[in-house]
Design a binder for these strands. Structure first.
Length: 797
RNA sequence: GGGCCUGUAGUCUAGUGGUUAGGACAACGCCCUUACAAGGCGUUGGCCCAGGUUCGAAUCCUGGCAGGCCCACCA
């Protein structure tokens, strides 16, 4: 018998304590020795950032992952549900720079890393508390070296594996160093990859700048948003079809202020309609410029240095920051009469995804990982992966189709994995560490000596360590490989391979082009295999229609506040029934979360009612003796059970939960329970003993089945009810097996509920209260088998 | 400019050719009924628009309109 009058969110705390005592037994992953691969359900979970509390969208997404794993455990799988904390890269560095008011490039490296570690120390575990409170059952919240312990992406063993993968690929000639025009962030002072570019709508000016044609002395006007690059201008183009400028072909223009002569050329990339129809080509204002310089084999004249400032080639602008230079040259041009007019405009500017600074195109020498040669393989490979939902595959396919150059993997930053290379100071020979397959090491070339005494080429003993680090996606993209290596308990790639593919990669749609794409690429390059069987892509929780949750807007709805207000369970239920997270964004509302508590109360009351009848009394009841009504209901329940099982196994928790909730509330509580109530009580002895026992047995059997099926979604309440009524831990129960009760009755649940509604409506029309009797009601032919129950229920005469 | 996705009651969402278009919130009416008034029962209300395919379209096709995302460009 349930003691408490109703479900209360305060019970959750005690329940968590119960679980915590037995965490390993309930949710752990410690019996690896007997692990069979066909029993393994492995997930490569997205590591949340160490220095940011989780937001509500993440909370929902991780809750969904918990739905999956709780279900899989019930199905007998050994579930590897690891937790990683992402601690690498720019977000940490930027946080450190901000907090301590320093610039990474201006203080000693060791010192800066200390500041980063300080940030990380304060930040640690900021999100795991919320996860645990939400009932998310990672295998462990303790940091350690076992597969099921929390891992940090800046662990030495993780970084060592990243470096080992680099060495492996370098030796396979998949990595090369080259000077190319790169996307360069002047704020972070590093090259970034195409996948790290974002675009922002920013206000700027079109400046209509007057040039003089040397040969004819006429004036021509070119519009530009980048006047500071005037000095880097190498050509002015017009469209071959443009009659206005045809006569300028082959002539020369004089750059104002710089007085340099440049060619005027006809070229199809110039469009008649845009600006004045004339466009200047500078090194390098945008991607078109790069293509043009490459095509014409022009020597670029670069005006911007690696600090994001104008260099000596820019003449009077030298030393200024780009924006200052833009202002200064505009003023200068205006004063000297070279500006015809200025127009305000906005345009989408490529910015650094991390720090939002405007990007520049600068020629840099960087390490590249070959990816162009693998696009074909990846297109094929992704077809062998199952996507939930199928439409998310498009995002990946589109990205694969738009990859246009190899991946620049080196970064000029600090708190990241170092590139494990040394150079001979004398002959510049490259030293790459040799290592055994199962004995890898973490290298820090900027402060360590190389693993050789002397240069194998020239014998010199003087070396220089590589200063650069890896793009953090180069680390992140082997998370699954790292987890597999923990399972394999070795760093031998051949053995790691056996644990791939993992069963599931759950992740957000916004990191398909990075995390998912790079992982597939990297795992394929390292093992020739696909990384995952299934990819589950979650969409977003929105504040309003079409409006993303964003910190800057001040509309943050924090998980901790939601938990405090409504409890974890109501939030879990809301996450499951508000919409199908892998199909659509959905909109959060406190009202709806609060409303989910109603079902919890309902479930509690149903259970409280059934708990009035001792389970012990009917535990041994022989199903052969079930009366027709009960057989019929259990057979209906079996139909539902089957559907729910399929929905859960295909990650459609939305469908499973809404269907289950409706069944429990509508058919089970409102109809079946009302129908058999009198028979179960049997206070006036109108029914035989077997009839009474049959009702009690069917009620308990139904309740057990429903509780178990609800457990993956709402584990707190189902745990408490199950424990109090049946004295067992629901976390260790199996998903309900087939209910083997056969019924020949054809009537469906719908027909019964229609009949009941009819009676209730008639009573209402006649102004009769529900418990009063009513006469002249005909019981339909197909419901005759439960006539006695119906008569008692409605007090029919 | 190109691509992808979405459009279902006041709101949030299921539903891929045949359903009386399902559920939740809100609204309204009635009811303390031996689990439940933090409740129960009931009621109202919906497929963006226009064509087409089909015996039949929320669902498929075409074209609009609206929103979101991605890519490219921005002189």
């Amino acid at each position: 018998m349930l003691k408490e009058k109703k479900w209360d969110k305060s019970f959750e705390e005690e329940i968590l304590k119960d679980w915590e005592k037995d965490w390993e037994k309930l949710y752990g992953f410690s019996n690896q020795k007997k692990l069979r691969l066909d029993e393994l359900y492995s997930i490569d979970t997205p590591p949340p950032y160490a220095n940011a509390p989780i937001h509500i969208g993440q909370a929902s997404a991780y809750i969904w992952k918990d739905f999956f794993v709780r279900y899989q455990r019930m199905k007998g799988k050994k579930v590897l549900f690891p937790l990683g904390i992402d601690r690498n890269g720019l977000p940490i560095e930027i946080a450190a720079e901000k907090k301590f008011g320093i610039s990474a490039h201006e203080i000693p490296r060791e010192k800066f890393l200390e500041y980063c570690r300080k940030i990380l120390k304060e930040a640690s575990d900021i999100s795991t508390k919320d996860f645990k409170r939400l009932g998310i059952t990672y295998n462990s919240y303790e940091k350690g070296k076992n597969a099921w312990n929390v891992y940090y992406t800046d662990d030495e063993e993780y970084r060592a594996l990243t470096q080992a993968s680099f060495i492996y690929l370098y030796k396979k000639n998949l990595i090369y160093e080259d000077v190319k025009i790169s996307n360069y962030c002047p704020r972070c002072r590093t090259t970034i990859a195409d996948a790290e570019i974002a675009y922002e709508e920013k206000p700027t000016y079109f400046n209509y700048v007057k040039f003089k044609v040397k040969e004819t002395n006429e004036e021509i006007t070119v519009a530009t948003t980048r006047p500071e690059l005037l000095g880097a201008c190498k050509a002015i183009l017009f469209n071959p079809e443009d009659k206005r400028y045809k006569h300028l072909e082959g002539k020369h223009a004089v750059i104002p202020l710089y007085e340099r002569e440049i060619k005027i050329m006809a070229h199809p990339i110039a469009e008649v309609e845009k600006g004045t129809g004339l466009v200047m080509m500078c090194s390098f204002g945008d991607y078109m410029d790069i293509l043009f310089f490459r095509e014409q084999k022009l020597d670029p004249l670069v005006l911007i240095n690696k600090e994001g400032k104008m260099n000596e080639h820019s003449g009077f602008l030298a030393g200024l920051k780009i924006k200052e230079a833009r202002e200064k040259i505009t003023k200068e041009l205006e004063e000297k009469g070279f500006i015809e007019k200025r127009e305000k405009t906005t345009h989408k500017t490529p910015v650094c995804e991390r720090c939002k600074e405007d990007l520049e195109f600068i020629e840099m020498k960087e390490f590249y990982l070959k990816q162009m040669d693998f696009l074909k393989d990846l297109r094929k490979l992704q077809k062998e992966i199952r996507f939930f939902d199928e439409k998310s595959r498009n995002i990946l396919e589109n990205w694969i189709d738009s990859v246009s150059m190899d991946w620049a993997i080196s970064r000029r930053r600090f708190y990241a994995t170092e590139i494990p290379i040394w150079y001979c100071k004398k002959c510049n020979h490259t030293i790459i560490p040799e290592q055994k397959k199962d004995e890898i090491k973490y290298y820090q070339p900027w402060k360590e000596k190389p693993p050789v005494d002397k240069c194998p080429k020239c014998g010199s003993k003087e070396f220089k360590g590589e200063q650069r680090v890896f793009d953090t996606w180069f680390d992140s993209s082997i998370s699954v490989f790292f987890l597999a290596s923990r399972l394999a308990k070795t760093t031998d790639f051949e053995k790691i391979k056996e644990y791939l593919p993992f069963t599931l990669r759950p992740q957000g749609k916004e990191i398909i082009r990075t995390w998912l794409y790079y992982t597939l690429l990297r795992v394929f390059q390292l093992t020739g295999k696909k990384a995952f069987e299934n990819v589950w892509v979650n969409y977003h929780i929105l504040v309003k229609k079409g409006e993303k949750m964003s910190k800057s807007k001040g509309e943050k709805i924090e998980p901790s506040k939601i938990i405090k207000k409504f409890g974890a369970e109501a939030f879990r239920l809301w996450s499951a029934v508000e919409g199908n997270l892998h199909k659509t964004d959905f909109i959060i509302s406190e009202k709806k979360i609060a409303a989910e508590e109603k079902f919890l109360i309902k479930l509690w009351n149903i259970s409280k009612f059934i708990s009035k009848f001792e389970w012990k009394e009917v535990e041994k009841f022989d199903e052969k003796n079930l009366v027709e009504t009960d057989k019929w209901f259990l057979a209906e329940l079996e139909k539902v059970r089957k559907k729910i099982d399929v929905s859960f196994s295909t990650y459609n928790v939305y469908r499973a939960t809404t269907e289950l909730r409706h069944f429990a509330w509508e058919y089970f509580a409102s109809h079946y329970l009302e129908m058999v109530k009198k028979r179960a009580y049997n206070t006036e002895n109108k029914f035989g003993k077997n009839d009474c026992l049959s009702a009690k047995y069917a009620l308990h059997k139904s309740l057990q089945t429903i509780l178990k099926m609800l457990y993956p979604v709402i584990p707190f309440i189902t745990y408490k009810i199950y424990k109090e009524i049946y004295g067992k831990n629901i976390c260790l129960e199996k998903f309900p097996e087939k209910i083997g009760v056969e019924s020949k009755i054809k009537a469906g649940l719908e027909e019964v509920s229609q009949f009941n509604s009819k009676v209730w409506n008639m009573k209402k029309e006649k102004g009769v209260s529900l418990k009063e009797g009513i006469s002249n009601i005909e019981i339909p032919e197909n419901l005759r088998f439960m006539e006695k129950d119906l008569r008692e229920m409605h007090n029919l005469s």
